[in-house]
Write a protein that binds this DNA or RNA. Structure first.
Lengths: 201, 201
DNA sequence: GGTGTTACGTTACGACTGCAACGTAAAAGT
DNA sequence: ACTTTTACGTTGCAGTCGTAACGTAACACC
């Protein structure tokens, strides 16, 4: 079989195996042998594709980052209003079902990990920044001088993203029910996008 | 020296050593020997006070939880309004200086950890729930039928806590400047507590 | 159709891990 | 004063870790 393999594809397969381990046993369970076993190969094979464990970890983190971005891009197509698009994107970020809970655990683990290994934080930061700017753009499109809430669109976007990720963390810890998080999110969106906020003034 | 030691005190010293390790080398660097070395003792001594590593970890997590709660209690005394109290509490939660960044890293690591070890999640969940209810109570005290924003006080409280923890995560990842996070937070507090929100209606 | 390269698997090594067992010295209890 | 308990330190063990080295079989190429 030599020579015929797609290098990039193999690396992604291994990264996926790693992510599966992180999702249900945590970062500390990641070892070359475990990743190999999870992928159905030996640790030597893992070594063949990654010079070190650090390189493997860094690659897996990038895969996570790309996956989040891809999910975001997919979620925001076909919405008929800025509000609907933002809501779709933000809902797609929340760990509301089991597969997304797994992904959320992985993401959280890597966020914590990159806190100690700052050289890996770039990918995650890019993600946050991109999302923040995207939200800001959407908000800018619908806000007028009258409807703005005493903050800039970028501030509103930053707050929205922080709110969503905070809700996500709480959901991963099962601190309250998913529908409660969604209701909080919808109330916030109503503040940002709804006209009814001035109904009582 | 035997018999004269305060068991609880020793355990806390060891837990603090562990937390120091987590803060600057991450959860994966925690081992009985490292904890002992950090505390200036041997791993055998650590074994004497904790039957297993898991027990040590669980104890350290509880210490973290108690510390957060203590900080919260300290931060909310002496405020002259509900809004000021909430702001003081919430600001004290953000990793705005280096010591609190260390604590934040530890807290984040344990949140991620407890995601995989659900039996340890109770302490953290209690923390969240307590905070949430406290915020809700404060908000309830100042909200009238007119000023409420289309959500319940508990929803507003949940959103505020999620926002703060999300901002905290982003700050740990250095995704933007601390003062930016504070400005977002203040804008949100103005929405929740300010009367000026109806100035344009 | 050799030849060289690629893709693995296998093995080995030194370091590290959690944990159990044992040793010892100091104080408390009697 | 003698015994028991407590508080450690030390040692050892079986297992796992990351990594380097080596072996080998299958294809690409000329």
């Amino acid at each position: 079989m030599p020579k015929r393999v797609d290098h990039a594809e193999r690396r992604e397969q291994l990264a996926e195996a790693l992510l599966r381990i992180v999702a249900d046993r945590g970062l500390e369970a990641v070892s070359l042998r475990h990743v190999g076993a999870e992928a159905g190969v030996t640790s030597g094979m893992v070594q063949h594709y990654f010079r070190s464990k650090d390189e493997l970890m860094a690659f897996a983190l990038e895969v996570v980052s790309e996956r989040v971005q891809a999910r975001a891009a997919a979620a925001m197509t076909g919405a008929d209003s800025a509000r609907a698009e933002v809501r779709a994107l933000v809902i797609s970020l929340l760990p509301l079902d089991e597969p997304r809970r797994l992904e959320g655990r992985v993401a959280l683990a890597f966020v914590s990990y990159s806190t100690i290994r700052p050289e890996l934080a770039a990918a995650l930061q890019q993600n946050t920044t991109g999302m923040r700017e995207h939200f800001a753009e959407q908000i800018r499109q619908v806000w007028t001088e009258e409807t703005r809430l005493g903050m800039t669109p970028l501030q509103a976007a930053t707050g929205l993203l922080a709110l969503v990720e905070g809700l996500g963390m709480h959901l991963l810890g099962e601190h309250y029910a998913p529908e409660e998080a969604v209701s909080v999110l919808d109330a916030h969106l109503e503040l940002l996008f709804g006209q009814s906020m001035r109904r009582s003034g």
